[in-house]
Computed example of a mutant assay.
Amino acid sequence: MGMKDRLNNFFFLEDDSEELDNPFEKTTSTNIKEKTAEPVKKEKTSNSKDQSMRKASSNQNIVAINQQQAIKKPRINVLEPRTYSEVQGVADILLNNQSVILNFRRMEKDQAKKVIDFLMGTTYAIKGDIERIGEEIFVCTPQSVELDGAELQALKKQDF
């Protein structure tokens, strides 16, 4: 008999073949039920419930705490605005916590500067960032996205 069995016997955790419906009744050697002040323990029932709960919890799949965020992929929108009036749509995308890459090759230079000024205010308001990644290409990111790269620093120094 192992140590676990001895402890189970000591604490009456071993299966009893005689379980009573009334916890305040116990059976004597002559099978006469008598009332007692202490309830007779039904360890098997509560123990089996505990074991089944443990088994059920151990068999469940692990699910991410923020399941919606885990499923939703980050989105990067690539746009080629042609007029200044399209800047509000770009700002709305940023406000929806999405990144935007802007290519200004189809826009006049003075109009593009106005768009950049507007988007600098937008990215500042949402604690995001705006970076130049090419001669006429910029990326605007919300606070949740960080840009990294030495090449970006070199491009920043060039005038637009």
Rank of each mutant, 00 (worst) to 15 (best):
I116Q: 06
F104Q: 04
R54S: 13
E14P: 00
V115E: 04
K72P: 00
A91G: 03
V78W: 04
N31A: 13
I71M: 06
P23R: 13
N9C: 02
N31Y: 11
N66A: 07
E19C: 05
E18V: 15
I130Y: 02
R6V: 09
V87A: 11
N9H: 05
A112D: 05
K114W: 01
E131L: 08
R6S: 10
Q158K: 12
I101K: 02
Q69Y: 03
Y84G: 02
Q60S: 14
K26W: 07
L147E: 06
L119C: 06
R82Y: 01
K72H: 02
Q158D: 10
I126Q: 01
S144C: 05
M107V: 05
L152M: 12
I130F: 02
Q153V: 15
I93P: 01
Q51F: 12
K55Y: 08
Q143G: 01
A112F: 06
I101S: 01
R75Q: 08
V40T: 15
T122R: 05
V139E: 06
N66S: 06
K157C: 03
D148V: 14
V40N: 15
L119P: 00
A56H: 08
S52A: 13
L155S: 06
S144Y: 01
V78C: 06
S57P: 00
N59M: 10
I93C: 04
T123F: 00
L7S: 05
K73H: 03
L95N: 15
N61H: 09
P142Y: 03
Q60H: 07
K49M: 10
E151M: 09
K35D: 09
A37Y: 08
G89H: 03
E151N: 12
K55G: 07
S52H: 10
P39T: 13
M53F: 12
V145P: 02
S58A: 10
S57Y: 10
